[in-house]
Design a protein around this nucleic acid. Structure first.
Lengths: 218, 218
DNA sequence: AGTTGTGAACTGATTCACAGCC
DNA sequence: GGCTGTGAATCAGTTCACAACT
């Protein structure tokens, strides 16, 4: 009898968590290609990782693979979704409907991966009431009611740096549990919410660092 | 006599490189606030890091601080710029002028931090020839000439996943040395260029992971 | 007193290497 | 032959703690 892939919790390395998302993304590609199974070596090669790394990561959560065969693409896909929490859908708000915010509203990749953009907020009076991609832009004062009624757990902050902390405070106050921050400031939320930050300019700086010699080769 | 802050190279932890950008960002805020000096403790506190971490990071590059006083904000600022390579400006191209690409073209944060968007590329015939933020959108076949004449070293890829590898190949062929990739695929460039990847959906997934219990508290 | 720079200790992550399974 | 799961070994990154400096 086949061993059951019971998901065990425990201390998951942060680095492993980031790679789980990569595994999932790649598994979706393999699934489109009608791949039934995949080995740690092939999965790793597609992502620039060693086979041992892939096996170690997956083993944190249970025994998903079959010696001599590899991992079942569909099953591993759904197990990782369960681990990441994306086996269910997440209603998500976007705060700050400027150029970047608008691009995020229409970004198809969110919906495809389990995130539904269901509310838009801005504090600019001239934007409030207008629509973007079929959704009405709301004032921040409507956040508490909407977060509650639409069961919003996540929000994306795409406001200018100077407005980001206040936007975060108000959304946490309104009840969101996780914030993806695109503003170039470090937010303080005092453990009230999970934080994830993306600074677009910093991403380019990491490239110039690599190119300026210090970055180590390869 | 004051010790000279000679930048030493050597093996810089990847993690340190990422934090350098954060230090720089924070130093700019302190500089606006007319701060003359800053201690490792204050700099770290603003970013959620320990003082020891800050000192260790900065010490990889030389001796910038003064015992009993701290670090000179302006000097540390310009030293980190030098280390990151952003003491000079970087002409940058954007490939893929869809919703995200357009938002990136107009994103002010790039210019402010040393990146000049000087060329736009797309492979969609209906977009070629149009303008975006005052720049003409070019076909990919113009990339080699423009990369050379405008001395473009970096590009941002904001095309759909299915087109990303080809876009990367063509830009590397055209001569760029670093790629910031927003497409949700792992690119292969065979060491011809430095790579940095941002997958927007993955950023949200990391939040759901934290919220789904596995992510460790704090 | 306040703060840096840094070896030493520690904690965390990756790679190795191999027994066991298909 | 191919492949997983995992303990052991290695490598990397962080924190500690303190001498030295202002």
């Amino acid at each position: 009898m086949r061993k059951r892939p019971v998901i065990r919790a425990g201390a998951i390395p942060k680095a492993t968590a980031e790679r789980l998302s990569l595994y999932l993304r790649q598994l979706e590609l393999f699934a489109e290609g009608e791949q039934e199974t995949v080995s740690s070596r092939r999965l790793g090669a597609a992502l620039g990782l060693t086979d041992a790394q892939v096996r170690k990561d997956l083993a944190y959560f249970g025994q998903f693979g079959r010696p001599g065969v590899g991992y079942d693409v569909q099953e591993l896909n759904s197990q990782i979704r369960k681990i990441l929490g994306t086996d269910k859908r997440w209603p998500t708000a976007i705060v700050g409907i400027g150029n970047l915010g608008r691009a995020l509203v229409t970004y198809g990749g969110f919906r495809k991966r389990g995130f539904d953009i269901v509310a838009l907020f801005d504090s600019d009076q001239s934007k409030i009431g207008r629509a973007c991609d079929g959704l009405r832009i709301r004032g921040m004062e409507e956040a508490p009611a909407l977060v509650r009624s639409l069961r919003i757990k996540l929000c994306v902050i795409a406001v200018p740096a100077s407005a980001a902390q206040e936007a975060a405070d108000r959304m946490v106050q309104a009840g969101v549990r996780g914030i993806l921050n695109f503003a170039p400031v470090t937010l303080a939320v005092g453990g009230q919410a999970a934080l994830q930050a993306v600074d677009l300019a910093i991403q380019l700086e990491q490239l110039t660092f690599k190119l300026s010699g210090h970055g180590g080769e390869r």
